[in-house]
Design a protein around this nucleic acid. Structure first.
Length: 107
DNA sequence: CGGGTGACTATAA
DNA sequence: TTTATAGCCACCC
């Protein structure tokens, strides 16, 4: 259950990220109306069920890297998902300038 | 109510 | 470039 509408907003923003693109925690937070609270996004993702349909793997940190410890289970899963969508992960880093999601603001 | 934590970010040195 | 620090907000004890 969710008590806070913020979480649902985050999920909505998350689902709006197109395939082949990525967004940072701060970006998602901003679009969800909680700008400055990137940690909330991280918390929200950490609570997502393993079988969720949401593209949680399209969310990375502002450094263009995956926020999981390198070599961890979640890390490998995220890299696999990203690569499967055509996102290049080189040296554990993602080119934000190339793959960053640029929302059209259509709402 | 207060203190600690976390899949974060921006700024300064 | 990397490290340190402060700010951020919900959740848990």
């Amino acid at each position: 259950m969710v008590q806070n509408p913020v979480y649902e907003m985050i999920w909505q923003v998350l689902a709006a990220i197109p395939p082949g693109k990525v967004a940072t925690y701060g970006q998602v937070a901003s679009l969800a109306g909680v700008s400055g609270s990137a940690r909330l996004v991280g918390r929200c993702l950490s609570q997502l069920p393993a079988d969720t349909r949401l593209p949680w793997f399209r969310v990375i940190n502002a450094s263009g890297k995956i926020s999981f410890p390198v070599g961890s289970d979640g890390y490998k899963r995220q890299v696999k998902r990203l690569q499967d969508e055509g996102v290049a992960v080189l040296n554990g880093r993602i080119s934000l300038t190339t793959f960053r999601w640029q929302p059209d603001g259509a709402c």
